[in-house]
Design a protein around this nucleic acid. Structure first.
Length: 425
RNA sequence: GGAGAGGUGGCUGAGUGGUCGAAAGCGAACGACUCGAAAUCGUUUAAUAGGAAACUAUUCGUGGGUUCGAAUCCCACCCUCUCCGCCA
């Protein structure tokens, strides 16, 4: 969420910054609303002040109560009643305005960072570096072909259980998934992250706090009888973990790593990545998350990205690092580095981690602050996948495929998986 | 799901319509005493928003309502605890 005061006092600055996203943003309406709101706030505050004084006076008059000055009392009460009517009218106005301002402000995305490459869409993203040698040769098999031949997952049976875009992991597939989760959690906790397993169901307030609501309600599954949604990413519960808190500055930065299942409706992606592990309604993810002081978030962003990267390196998976352009940035992010893993069957790099610096955008929505120079200041939040498990498995299957149909397990994973090779059981 | 009890400042806990942002205690800070410390004594000590400040408003789980006035009365909801039921 953007700063309401900034919108009120410097609307042009806000428009200019938002427009870096490659779209025109008109905020004149919300700008007017914030000004009206401020006026009402001031008027209401002074009215309340007067009416409070009057109430005290009435209390005093009653307290004396010697010679039944009923007339005086009635006059005072009448005056009080007038105040009450005026106040309740103003409060009603304030409520309506508040809601309007809130609705509009929650629909505005974050400002892109000045450092982010300017661009319109995906095609303008900038590759920063590549790591490892992408596997390119003939007769490459896709990970779903490998998976089916090794009988480690089954999507057809999963449609019986649920519908398309769900997967059931079987035998060594399930074991590999578990190995990956444990491996990643161990790596990150060794690096100073505190491990959390958060609830998978989150309420609307939490989704609003991290930016998924109100704008993207179509992208999450909702429980019809409760104000609860299946969390699309651990970023949601992690942000909400410190919702409405003022965090002791000495505790910053706070670094969390959370394993969680993630649920996404994938509305509008019909026909894309219909096979395999790339785009599922349910997938597992290990998520990294930082709360830090504002002055340190740029540095933290580099760190969280390199922490995610370290997993790819350990697994010896070729990848590249991409600087997301202003037009392709996520709603809450001001700057994002994507890590994309090489998928030989696609002959391209596919996103496996997205590391974002949201600055104070989520912190303001969720009211997460810290005291800096005795002033309450919104913290900065950063998130990054470290990594998406399903896509990691796909990358291991494809990059590790052998002529005999087996798959080589990366050395770092062998202690977790219990074997250096994945064969037909 | 049923029955009951409860939710008040950093913590414990009093407060059932008026000068209550809230007694008391603990804790914390500062001072006195002391070579120093403990003990003791004294003073101070809620937060948030707006404001340069003075100050103003808000906050006793949340949201409504009654009233000139609500921590206190009414309604709805949320949460916690105990017992029963159900359940991994």
């Amino acid at each position: 969420m953007l700063d309401q005061k900034l919108i009120r006092e410097n609307p042009r600055f806000v428009e200019e910054n938002l427009s870096l996203r490659g779209k025109v943003y008109k905020i004149s309406h919300i700008h007017e609303l914030t000004i009206k709101k401020k006026e009402i706030d001031i008027e209401l505050s002074s009215l309340l002040s007067e009416s409070k004084k009057l109430s005290k006076l009435i209390g005093q008059v009653i307290g004396k109560a010697q010679n039944n000055n009923l007339q005086e009392l009635n006059d005072l009460k009448k005056k009080g009643n007038e105040y009450r009517i005026k106040i309740s009218e103003l409060e009603e106005n304030q409520r309506i305005l508040d809601k309007e301002v809130n609705d509009e402000i929650h629909n505005l995305p974050n400002f892109p960072s000045k450092e982010a490459p300017i661009g319109k869409d995906e095609s303008d993203n900038v590759q920063i570096k590549t790591w490892g040698d992408p596997l390119r040769k003939e007769n490459i098999r896709s990970h779903w072909e490998i998976g089916e031949s090794l009988n480690i997952f089954d999507s057809v049976k999963s449609t019986k259980i649920s519908k398309s875009r769900f997967i059931t992991l079987i035998g060594n597939g399930a074991r590999l998934e578990r190995a990956l989760i444990n491996f990643m959690l161990d790596m990150h906790t060794k690096n100073g992250y505190l491990e959390l397993i958060p609830p998978a169901l989150v309420n609307s307030e939490s989704l609003t706090g991290s930016g998924q609501l109100p704008k993207f309600s179509n992208e999450s599954f909702k429980c019809s009888k409760d104000d609860l949604w299946l969390s699309p990413t651990a970023e949601v519960p992690l942000t909400a973990f410190h919702k409405n808190e003022i965090i002791d500055t000495n505790l910053l930065p706070m670094k969390y790593v959370a394993y969680s299942p993630c649920f996404r409706r994938e509305a509008g992606s019909y026909g894309r990545d219909t096979k395999g592990l790339i785009r599922l309604h349910q997938f597992n993810k290990v998520e990294l998350y930082w709360f830090c002081e504002p002055s340190k978030s740029a540095e933290a962003h580099k760190q969280i990205t390199s922490d995610a990267e370290s997993i790819l390196k350990k697994l010896n998976l070729p990848y590249r690092l991409v600087d997301i352009c202003t037009g392709d940035l996520g709603f809450s992010s001001s700057r994002t580095f994507d890590l994309e893993v090489w998928l030989p069957s696609n002959k391209c790099y596919r996103e496996i981690s997205s590391c974002s610096n949201c600055l104070d955008f989520q912190a303001r929505r969720s009211s997460i602050r810290t005291k800096i120079d005795k002033k309450n200041t919104y913290v900065h939040t950063l998130n990054g996948s470290g990594l998406a498990i399903g896509r990691t498995m796909a990358a291991i299957l494809e990059n590790g495929q052998q002529k005999d149909g087996s798959v080589k397990i990366p050395d770092a994973l062998v202690p977790y998986f219990g074997s250096n090779s994945l064969k037909l059981a």
